[in-house]
């Protein structure tokens, strides 16, 4: 089971996890990304069409590599306030090791291989595009693919 979504609307993490739990595996791994201060407003832009295709490739790679029963990747776009959910990556597997590793793989790849861009407005009013972090690229390379 693969569920890929790019959407402006919020999502219900519990529903996504319940759907994964219903697949009969023994473990569900989950990463939930949230907007945090001092960011007053986060605006997410993406490349419609390419984004969904890239997310599907990432999810299919995770399913194959970790023998997953299913995974869910939901990424929001548009304007988000502190405390709002940005992204959910979750994976269901027979055991916890694969579920947790696959979750880390999904979010590491999502950060470097899916065409999203974040612009943040700080509490003082300053606006800036978030720069890619060398640590994210290193984390992605660490998976050796």
């Amino acid at each position: 089971m693969l569920r890929i979504a790019v959407q402006a609307a919020d999502f219900a993490p519990g529903e996504a996890l319940d759907a994964l739990a219903a697949l009969g595996g023994g473990g569900i791994g989950c990463f939930l990304g949230v907007v945090r201060p001092p960011v007053a407003c986060l605006t997410l832009e993406h490349y419609p069409g390419m984004t969904e295709a890239a997310m599907r490739r990432i999810a299919e790679a995770a399913v194959a590599r970790f023998d997953l029963l299913g995974c869910v990747v939901i990424h929001r776009v548009g304007r988000l306030a502190p405390g709002e959910r940005i992204v959910l990556a979750a994976a269901a597997a027979a055991h916890r090791g694969a579920a947790l590793e696959a979750t880390a793989f999904l979010i590491d790849w999502l950060k470097t291989d899916a065409p999203f861009w974040k612009k943040e407005r700080l509490e003082g009013g300053e606006e800036r595009w978030v720069e890619a972090r060398a640590a994210d690229v290193a984390a992605r390379k660490g998976w050796g693919v």
Partner: peptide
Amino acid sequence: AVNQDFADRSAPVAPGDEVAFFPPVTGG
């Protein structure tokens, strides 16, 4: 990206292609 696949500077482009330019991605 060329036709919605990441591409480097040496990748070919031709009439009819969709070519996108953007900064390094920062999602997740």
